[in-house]
Design a protein around this nucleic acid. Structure first.
Lengths: 221, 221
DNA sequence: TCAAAATATGACCAATAGTCAGTAAATGAA
DNA sequence: TTCATTTACTGACTATTGGTCATATTTTGA
């Protein structure tokens, strides 16, 4: 048992090494520009070895996506554990997401990559894709939970269906952060150059905007 | 002059044919799966001919993106011409966008494709990319204009900066429609299966939500 | 009528994802 | 320790596909 355990640990370490290296290469060359040969060389492994751990290039990207989802969910779960009004939980979830994107831009890119794959087979029947989906479901559950808390404590209107509202908040948050994020990557997107607001300002105002839309009347300022 | 004009028309027709065919092939095989050979064959042209009109595969995708932007902007400009309260213009712009995405899903995909390219060179110095950017800027201008109308006619709070609010609305709308759109592509995204709302319902509620956030107090129900 | 210019073509090239036959290392029984 | 067997690794090779270019075809206009 000990022996198997060590082998298992080594196997996992190899896998992690590959993912680490892939993140590094992608950071330097982008998702398009990163090649399997480059990853193999940087990890000091033969290319074939990569394929012992991942069945395709897309799989590695999904693994990165999985890492990111896991990390984000950990951060979100902490917010849920705090003693806050529902409306403030929602706000804090928004800020946590913004912070996450700024701290780990590569995971944000990986999420987009993943979403673009949906619908184009490739990830059909993939273990990793299923895991990513599960994490996404979990993240969604946190948002819905916070909304329910808010409806319970009276800080959020209960005229919306929490699941539908959750989906809206999730989508809208991603959209706003996405657009703010594009702005940070200089070059192009001159539309954004006209607007001189920071990512923070944008997200805070967004949270404020939807916040005042969903806040129950007896909590309005 | 007549001769040159005819040649010019033929040249444009060829170009349009290629874009039409590319749209068709992409619809069948996805952006990843579509190959230049497939487009050439379907258009009954030699592959080299494609490169007389477009300098790369990405260029064709950008051309599709440009078409879509143009179309969307036409639809948006009509809304601006209507005699509506600013807040209702914003709502209508949202519905127009939703309708656009449902009617021309390929353009929505093309937009996403375009955005993913931003930052990864490839479209540096591209004529088409510049045109797409210009259209995006124009779309943004419509939203800002509608907000200004609303602030003027009193239907929208003037405590926000219209440009910042415009960016938020634009990003959030895209995010919500995006997530609702993923739902339509069956398979995967089980998170969304839990939620049985239609794209319409989602977008309407979203518009309602941000609407009540930005509506000026003397217009509140 | 025909030479020159413009246009079209597909065989070819380069890059890269993915494979596999062969090699090396680890294991564990004798 | 030895060696057969299993496991892990490798990089040369294949297949696919975006992009090029020498050649062929068509159009032009003198």
């Amino acid at each position: 048992m000990k022996k198997l355990s060590r082998k298992e640990r080594e196997r996992i370490a190899r896998r992690e090494l590959i993912i680490d290296t892939a993140e590094e290469v992608i950071s330097n060359y982008g998702f398009e520009g990163a090649t399997m040969d480059a990853v193999a060389e940087k990890a000091e492994l033969g290319k074939g070895t990569l394929y012992l751990h991942f069945k395709s290039k897309a799989s590695i990207y999904l693994a990165i996506c999985e890492r990111g989802s896991k990390k984000l969910n950990q951060l979100m779960s902490k917010v849920l554990a705090e003693d806050l009004k529902g409306i403030d939980m929602i706000k804090k979830l928004g800020m946590v997401y913004l912070d996450f994107v700024k701290t780990y831009p590569i995971y944000f890119s990986a999420f987009n990559y993943y979403e673009n794959l949906i619908g184009e087979e490739k990830l059909a029947g993939s273990e990793l894709a299923a895991q990513c989906e599960e994490y996404a479901r979990e993240a969604m559950a946190y948002i819905v939970r916070a909304l329910q808390v808010g409806m319970q404590d009276g800080s959020i209107k209960d005229s919306y269906d929490p699941r539908e509202l959750g989906l809206i908040i999730w989508g809208a948050s991603k959209g706003v952060v996405h657009i703010a994020f594009l702005k940070e990557k200089k070059e192009h997107m001159k539309i954004l150059d006209d607007v001189s607001f920071s990512l923070e300002s944008l997200v805070k105002n967004f949270i404020e905007l939807i916040g005042s839309g969903m806040r129950s009347d007896d909590h309005k300022s």
